Amino acid sequence: MQIDNSEERIRNIHQDLLEVYGEQDWHDDKDGVRQLLVTILSQNVADENTARAAENLFKDFKNYEEIENASVDELADSINPAGLPQTKAQRIQRTLKALREHGDKEDYSVEFLGDMEDSDAQDWLEEIKGIGPKTASVLLNFHFDADVMPVDTHVERIAKRFRLIPFSASNGKAHELLNEAVPHDIKNSFHMLIIEHGKNNCSARNPTCEETKLKRYCSRYELVENGDLTPEEYPPEEME
């Protein structure tokens, strides 16, 4: 499979995504700490479950200090709709502790990250156990408009099918390659639109590529059209 992640091709994909789905609304919470905690809740779970867990969290606890000092069981019970409640409760409390202890002033803020180079801010966040490239990139891109590309499961899957990155690329490598390839001025929009395409058409199983003009970018659809795969089959490298 020949990789083509040229700027021209990526901008063409972006334009076609816009024509199919329209510009996507995105919300910067203004409170970066809240945004970071909600992003932790969103790890590997549907949006509606994230919303329920976030609503519970900020209803059950008055402030970040209460969240940090709660028992893990109490916090886990509050965020249970997000799945993996014990694990995510510990991640949230580790994150709040790291933010509070940073610098001379003990408070809960992410604003110091805006004074760092993007790569340094990403590294600082990823030093917190449970925060990976995607969670860090979401905060930096949405809250600070940093030149980083969040890569979730939808983005990674579609980037591989669209031949933007190799199928063999790890999630970390996918972040690296897409950060380099996707122009800064469309990173946020491209990320949101790819997620929309993943939810609506390019699902992990039984994708409906033929229903949109985006099929022309898809390596899997090309194999089906050429008779090399049936619609129910997947390229061997995608199944690895």
Rank of each mutant, 00 (worst) to 15 (best):
residue 91 R to V: 03
residue 238 E to G: 15
residue 179 N to K: 01
residue 171 N to C: 05
residue 18 L to D: 02
residue 141 N to I: 02
residue 8 E to R: 12
residue 75 L to H: 13
residue 68 E to H: 08
residue 35 Q to F: 12
residue 117 E to W: 03
residue 105 K to Y: 09
residue 18 L to E: 04
residue 212 T to S: 15
residue 123 D to K: 12
residue 229 L to I: 02
residue 77 D to W: 05
residue 147 D to S: 12
residue 164 L to Q: 11
residue 21 Y to M: 02
residue 182 V to F: 05
residue 36 L to V: 09
residue 35 Q to S: 11
residue 76 A to C: 05
residue 182 V to S: 04
residue 47 D to M: 09
residue 122 Q to P: 03
residue 226 N to A: 15
residue 78 S to Y: 04
residue 22 G to Q: 07
residue 194 I to A: 00
residue 199 K to P: 01
residue 195 I to M: 07
residue 159 A to P: 03
residue 6 S to W: 08
residue 65 E to V: 07
residue 122 Q to K: 15
residue 94 R to N: 11
residue 204 A to M: 15
residue 58 F to C: 11
residue 174 A to L: 01
residue 18 L to Q: 08
residue 88 K to T: 07
residue 97 K to S: 13
residue 66 E to S: 02
residue 109 S to R: 13
residue 163 R to Q: 10
residue 216 R to S: 14
residue 234 Y to N: 11
residue 34 R to S: 09
residue 190 F to Y: 04
residue 140 L to C: 00
residue 14 H to P: 03
residue 147 D to T: 08
residue 172 G to Y: 04
residue 136 A to V: 03
residue 198 G to K: 05
residue 193 L to T: 09
residue 189 S to G: 10
residue 231 P to T: 10
residue 163 R to M: 10
residue 93 Q to R: 13
residue 89 A to D: 00
residue 45 V to C: 14
residue 51 A to H: 11
residue 81 P to K: 00
residue 212 T to K: 11
residue 137 S to G: 04
residue 181 A to S: 13
residue 117 E to T: 08
residue 84 L to E: 00
residue 198 G to M: 05
residue 176 E to P: 01
residue 215 K to D: 09
residue 220 R to Q: 06
residue 207 P to I: 04
residue 59 K to G: 10
residue 215 K to V: 08
residue 159 A to L: 06
residue 154 H to M: 01
residue 138 V to T: 00
residue 25 D to I: 08
residue 151 V to D: 01
residue 208 T to D: 13
residue 229 L to E: 06
residue 45 V to N: 12
residue 226 N to R: 15
residue 34 R to L: 03
residue 121 A to D: 09
residue 33 V to R: 09
residue 41 L to E: 13
residue 146 A to N: 03
residue 159 A to N: 04
residue 160 K to P: 02
residue 214 L to M: 09
residue 237 E to F: 14
residue 107 D to G: 11
residue 23 E to G: 05
residue 90 Q to S: 15
residue 175 H to V: 13
residue 205 R to C: 04
residue 66 E to I: 08
residue 119 S to Y: 15
residue 105 K to P: 10
residue 175 H to P: 10
residue 147 D to K: 15
residue 66 E to W: 01
residue 58 F to R: 00
residue 208 T to L: 12
residue 184 H to W: 14
residue 130 G to Q: 06
